[in-house]
Amino acid sequence: MIIGEGKPIKEILAMIEDHSKILLAGCRGCVTVCCAGGEKEVGILSAAVSLARENQGKPIDIKEVSLERQCDPEYLEEIRSMVEDYEAILSIACGAGVQFLAETYRKTLIYPGINTNFIGVTQEQGVWTERCQSCGDCKLHLTGGICPITRCAKSLLNGPCGGSATGKCEVNPETDCGWQMIYDRFKELGCLDQMEVIIPINDWTTSRDGGPRKIIREDLKL
């Protein structure tokens, strides 16, 4: 899923300081699961902003909503009737949701209430870690199911580099070395000879380097 985390309250307050009536929109998708932008976080953020504004002597009217998803047009439509009544929308969906709101409601100011960080997993309760950089050309079959583009700080396709020590990355002693993990996995699977294969220079056109990406499924179009 997409992992995000709330922006510092100070930054949010600065964004909306000129507004006195806003819509605070959560999302029931990924950001609910990673506890960054769901219904619960809408309530918490709303209370925090209201309190801060009262303390500043500039109370603010906040309408709380939580959409099923902010990345689908049909759910964005659900708030159309109320959008006009507010000066701005503070969205705590991921960056895709925030932008889709902005595209849908062109006359309303849209502010992001969270930072969108990565595509990852719930490592354990309260801990999320990155797994995928959506390069658009999955190579996991070549690397024992561990992505070197994501898990290696240098995205090396033929690692490990000389900075790998005791299983950790040179960039951060808390971070596992992606290529050590690949090596260990190959070893467990009894296919260490896979380490010998040169993975060729990458074609990044399927990644962000080809510009914003688009997928069209003719079989699904209406």
Binding site: P160, S164, A165, T166, C177, D184, M195
Partner: peptide, 12 residues
Amino acid sequence: ADPFESRVVRLA
């Protein structure tokens, strides 16, 4: 660097 056995593989 580590893993030790992989260092020669990388040289290869």
